[in-house]
Design a binder for these strands. Structure first.
Length: 449
DNA sequence: TAGAATGATTTCGC
DNA sequence: GCGAAATCATTCTA
C-alpha cells in the first residue's frame, strides 16, 4: 500500500465500465490501444473472480502474478475508492458519537473519591464524610472506621489502576497487531490507510467502553463502601409448623432437667421436624456453616430461646409443661403396655450404657421410650434407678388421670431442673429423679427422671 | 392495628 | 465454641 501513490501515477488511460476513475488512474501510461487495456482489466478481474475456485498453491501463484501485474496498483486504488465511498458512507452516520457525558461524570467522581488522581490525601475528606454518614460513634470507633474505610478505598484504588493499566496495555497491543495485520492484508485486498485509521478508532472505542465498565464498577464499589451498613442484617423468618413445635416441646419437657440436646439429637429433631433450609432466606452465611449445619442452628436457636423464656417465666409455661407431661405419660403407658422396653434408650448427650438418642424407631414414641429408661445424663445411676423411675412414671400416669379430679396445674407440675442460681441442674445430679413416695408437687413433666 | 409470640442475631462470659 | 441474656424483626392473633 505504501508504494501505491507512487504507482498510481505510472498508469493512465485505462477506462473501466462504471468507474471513470480508473481511466484517471491510468492516465499517462504509455502502451497499447484501448482494446488491449480493456482486455488486461478483463483478464485481471476474471482471475480475481476465479481465484477462490483454485487450489491453495494455484491461488498463491495466481496472487503473486496479480500482484506483479502492471495494472494492479490502479485497479487496487479504484477498489479502495469504491469501498471507502460505500462502506464508510454507510457507517459514517452510525459511528458519530456525542461526547461521553457519562464517562466524564465517572471520571469526576473517581477523582473526587480519590480513586483516580493523586493518592496522597485523596479521599480523606470522602472517608471522613463516609464515616460520619455511617453513623459511627465518636472517638475511637470513628477513627477505626475511618482507617478501615481508607484501607478499603486504597484497595479499590489499587485494583482500579492495575486493571486500567492492563486494559491500556491490551489496547495498544491489540491495535498494533490489527494495524500490522491490515497492512499486510492491504497488499492483497483493498484496504486504504484511511480504513486502517478507522479500524484503530473502533478498537479504541471498544476498549474505552470496557474502561467505562471498569470505572462504573469502581464507582459502585466506592458507593457501597460509603453507604452506611445496617447495624443488623435484614432477616426473614417463618414460624415452625405446629408439628415441629410439638416435637421440640416434647423433647424439651421430657428433658427438662437437662434440655441440652446433643448434636445427634439435634440432627434427629431437625429431621423429624422437617426443618429445611428452604424455609428460610438467609441474607448471608455464618462463615462457612451455611449448609447442613443450618438445621442444627435452628434447633439450637429454638432450645436456646426455649430455655431462656422458660426460665424467665416458669409460671406461664406450667400449663404447657403439664400438657406435655401428660402426653409423655400416655405415650409411656402405650409403650409399656406393648412391652417396648426392649428399645434402646434415646438419650441426649449420652454415650455408652444409656445408648444414643434415636427417634427413628417409633416416631413420637421416642419420648415414651425415654420416659421409661431415663435420661442418659444419669449415667451409672440409670441402672440403679430404673425401677424407681418406672414407679415415678406410674405416679405421673396416675396424676394425669386426676386432671378431671381437680388437680391444678401447679400440683401437676413443678419446675424442675433449674437450680437456685437460676441455671439448669448439673447434669450429673438430676433433682428430677423423684421417689414414688413423693407427693404430687414433686411430680413434673420430666417424667424420665 | 397494637401487642404477643417467636425465630434469629449479637454480645459477652466462661 | 457453647450457652445465657438481650435485643431485633417478623409473624400471629385478638
Amino acid at each position: 500500500m505504501d508504494e501505491q501513490p507512487r504507482l498510481m501515477h505510472s498508469h493512465a488511460g485505462v477506462g473501466m465500465a462504471g468507474h471513470p476513475g480508473l481511466s484517471q488512474h491510468m492516465e499517462g501510461t504509455g502502451g497499447t490501444d484501448g482494446d488491449g487495456r480493456k482486455q488486461d482489466i478483463g483478464d485481471i478481474l476474471q482471475q480475481i473472480m476465479t481465484i477462490t475456485d483454485q487450489s491453495l498453491d494455484e491461488a498463491q501463484a495466481r496472487k503473486h502474478a496479480l500482484n506483479c501485474h502492471r495494472m494492479k496498483p490502479a485497479l487496487f486504488n479504484v477498489l479502495c475508492e469504491i469501498k471507502e465511498k460505500t462502506v464508510l458512507s454507510i457507517r459514517g452516520a452510525q459511528e458519530e458519537e456525542p461526547p461521553d457525558a457519562q464517562l466524564m461524570r465517572l471520571d469526576n467522581m473517581l477523582l473526587a473519591e480519590g480513586v483516580s488522581g493523586p493518592e496522597k490525601g485523596g479521599g480523606s475528606a470522602a472517608a471522613a464524610a463516609a464515616a460520619a454518614a455511617s453513623g459511627g460513634g465518636a472517638g475511637a470507633d470513628n477513627s477505626a472506621e475511618h482507617s478501615d474505610y481508607r484501607a478499603k478505598l486504597s484497595q479499590i484504588r489499587q485494583i482500579y489502576h492495575t486493571e486500567l493499566e492492563k486494559y491500556e496495555q491490551a489496547c495498544n497491543e491489540f491495535t498494533t497487531h490489527v494495524m500490522n495485520l491490515l497492512r499486510e492484508q492491504s497488499r492483497t485486498r483493498p484496504i486504504s490507510p484511511k480504513e486502517i485509521e478507522r479500524m484503530v478508532g473502533i478498537i479504541h472505542r471498544k476498549f474505552s467502553s470496557i474502561q467505562m465498565q471498569l470505572k462504573q464498577s469502581t464507582c459502585e464499589a466506592v458507593m457501597i463502601l460509603r453507604s452506611p451498613l445496617p447495624r443488623r442484617q435484614v432477616r426473614k423468618r417463618r414460624n415452625f409448623n405446629k408439628q415441629a413445635t410439638e416435637i421440640l416441646n416434647e423433647y424439651f419437657y421430657s428433658h427438662l432437667s437437662n434440655p441440652y440436646p446433643s448434636e445427634e439429637a439435634k440432627e434427629e429433631l431437625a429431621k423429624k421436624c422437617s426443618i429445611t433450609v428452604s424455609q428460610y432466606t438467609w441474607n448471608w452465611t455464618r462463615g462457612s456453616t451455611f449448609t447442613s449445619c443450618t438445621l442444627f442452628v435452628q434447633v439450637s436457636n429454638w432450645f436456646g430461646n426455649k430455655r431462656i423464656r422458660y426460665k424467665k417465666n416458669i409460671g406461664k409455661f406450667q400449663e404447657e409443661a403439664n400438657m406435655y407431661a401428660a402426653k409423655t405419660a400416655v405415650n409411656a403407658t402405650n409403650v409399656s403396655s406393648h412391652g417396648s422396653q426392649a428399645n434402646s434408650p434415646s438419650t441426649p448427650n449420652s454415650a455408652g450404657s444409656a445408648g444414643s438418642f434415636n427417634m427413628s424407631n417409633s416416631g413420637d414414641l421416642f419420648m415414651s421410650v425415654q420416659s421409661l429408661n431415663g435420661d442418659s445424663y444419669q449415667g451409672a445411676q440409670v441402672g440403679a434407678n430404673v425401677q424407681s423411675q418406672v414407679d415415678t412414671l406410674r405416679h405421673v400416669i396416675s396424676q394425669t388421670g386426676g386432671y378431671s379430679e381437680g388437680l391444678t396445674a401447679s400440683q401437676m407440675y413443678s419446675p424442675q431442673g433449674i437450680n437456685a442460681n437460676g441455671g439448669w441442674q448439673d447434669a450429673t445430679t438430676p433433682s428430677s429423679v423423684t421417689s414414688p413416695t413423693e407427693g404430687p408437687g414433686s411430680v413434673h413433666s420430666d417424667t424420665s427422671n
